[in-house]
């Protein structure tokens, strides 16, 4: 595997929107380049132990706190403690529900708008304004509307996620190669078939670029909504840890959310690669 090939692949992914690096084929030789990770963790551990930095506890204490708090439950419950069930499940459920709702709505509306010049001209200024509103500035509004609880958090996640998905889907559906559409007309495809066989596949790379952005946005909005107005969830637990000066528990939350970010991104890239494998092979 030449480094030139990797590089081309990486720049290819930035061009269509996100900025995620596609890590393919983790070979032993690649793993060697991970040497800095354990070294960094070890350096942190030693520095924290000798320096007594109050806000940077050694990683070992964070891990122990994570274990005590969340993962020391009975084997029958997959080692999750009561706290884990109370903190993690609502957060994850809202994250996925909000993300799924926003993606479905965004793709549907985006494709519809992308295929109609008049409709998109009608709503475009509104869209550009709506997506420019920082979703955090709407969280207090949702809080006043729905009070503390799941509806308010769902609304925050959906609003934060829907715009990049919608705009990218619209873009993708708008720029379908005219030849494809004409070929479909020659084969007398119906409206539904034209949509599922031609427009959606042709727009898929763009749609996925929007979805990729939306994964990290959904996580950000989940955390903000839980920090600002929630009585449960990871964000709420972190705020509680902060007010009780339980620094390792606060760090446990940061580590958990970071891991969640990595897992979600990696899983999404895997799905994207599978779904878009035809696109990759058609291009090269």
């Amino acid at each position: 595997m030449s480094t030139g090939a990797v590089r081309r692949e990486e720049t290819g992914t930035t061009r269509d929107g996100g900025g995620a690096v596609v890590v393919r084929r983790t070979s032993a030789r690649r793993l060697v380049w991970y040497w800095l990770l354990p070294v960094a963790v070890l350096a942190w551990e030693l520095a924290a132990r000798s320096g007594q930095a109050a806000y940077f506890p050694p990683p070992s204490r964070i891990v122990v706190r994570m274990y005590e708090m969340w993962f020391s439950g009975p084997p029958t419950r997959a080692f999750l403690t009561d706290e884990a069930v109370a903190d993690l499940l609502p957060s994850l459920a809202r994250l996925f529900a909000g993300w799924a709702m926003a993606c479905a709505a965004g793709v549907l509306a985006g494709v519809a708008l992308g295929r109609s010049v008049r409709l998109s001209a009608l709503v475009e200024p509104l869209l550009h304004f709506a997506r420019s509103v920082p979703p955090a500035a709407l969280v207090p509004v949702f809080l006043a509307l729905f009070k503390i609880g799941t509806p308010m958090e769902l609304a925050s996640i959906v609003y934060g996620v829907v715009w990049p998905v919608l705009i990218n889907s619209m873009d993708g559906a708008r720029h379908v190669d005219r030849q494809y559409i004409e070929t479909g007309a020659v084969y007398r495809l119906g409206r539904l078939q034209r949509l599922t066989r031609i427009i959606l596949p042709a727009a898929a790379p763009k749609i996925f670029a929007g979805l990729r952005l939306s994964v990290s946005l959904a996580l950000i909005m989940m955390i903000i909504s839980e920090l600002v107005g929630s009585s449960e969830g990871i964000g709420h637990r972190m705020l509680e840890a902060q007010s009780q000066f339980d620094i390792p528990a606060m760090w446990a939350g940061i580590v958990l959310l970071g891991l969640l970010g990595i897992v979600l991104n990696t899983a999404f890239l895997a799905v994207e690669r599978t779904v878009l494998s035809w696109h990759r092979s058609a291009r090269s």
């Binding site: 955390i223 920090l227 606060m250 939350g253 940061i254 959310l257 970071g258 970010g261 990595i262």
Partner: peptide
């Protein structure tokens, strides 16, 4: 970098 980047910045607000 690939490990640090996905950490959502807002999760660092309490810190």
């Amino acid at each position: 970098v690939e490990f640090l980047r996905p950490i959502p910045s807002v999760s660092l607000i309490p810190l």
